[in-house]
Design a protein around this nucleic acid. Structure first.
Lengths: 109, 109
DNA sequence: GTGTATTATCGTAATATTGCAATGTATAAT
DNA sequence: ATTATACATTGCAATATTACGATAATACAC
């Protein structure tokens, strides 16, 4: 017990929840918002921007990269991060597909 | 250590991540999808529908209710659940506000 | 009242996540 | 080659989440 029963759910449900979980931490949201705001790739400033330790930021960046929400390209001694545009658009569609499934004529409470 | 540093982030970031976290579990997604599909309130069938124990379902329902994503109205001895329409629409807007923040002219990697 | 059905809550075990110091790795500059 | 800089990784402690059996709590039927 204590382990998520992914076997009980559909592939889609597991995939979606995995992505949602990445958005489910304020540090990762802060990173994404900073990348959105900066209009370009960010090389390193993140540790100063957020108040977290370098190791912690690195860990969050890794999760964002694993989920393919951001890309990181090595630029000399630093790494430039930016949002993965195609994935970002894909996510917008995915989330909207869920939200739009609300029935227009719902006879409910 | 081990505790999310909510103090470092904006109210909005903390709120958003809290909602995203609710979507971050396949069982809760499965519940929501079932509610979307059923077109009306569901009284209890959820335990049979998903393969999880009653206590576990109840716990997930509680989190969905706490986040105000669903409503539960007592109907005799059972409880009828349905999606909170206004919150649902609000969430769609909130998520789209994030996704639409991607700069149209991004000079990036 | 008693019994039944339905859902909530409690207690607890297993696992996951978060955060950070310390250390490792890789590139650049001198 | 040495040093400095920027990140990544490791190891660990604190906390959170997930799951479920057992046990309430509540409403209904009788």
């Amino acid at each position: 017990m204590g382990v998520t029963r992914t076997d009980l759910f559909t592939e889609k449900q597991n995939e979606f929840s995995k992505i949602a979980k990445v958005f489910g931490h304020p540090a990762r949201l802060a990173i994404l918002e900073y990348l959105l705001k900066s209009q370009t790739c960010i090389c390193g400033d993140l540790v100063e921007e957020l108040g977290l330790a370098q190791a912690t930021i690195s860990q969050h960046l890794k999760e964002l990269k694993t989920a393919e929400i951001i890309k990181g390209t090595i630029e000399g001694t630093s790494v430039c991060y930016c949002i993965n545009e195609s994935k970002w658009h894909e996510l917008k569609v995915t989330f909207n597909e869920l939200f739009d499934r609300y029935p227009s004529a719902n006879e409910c409470c």
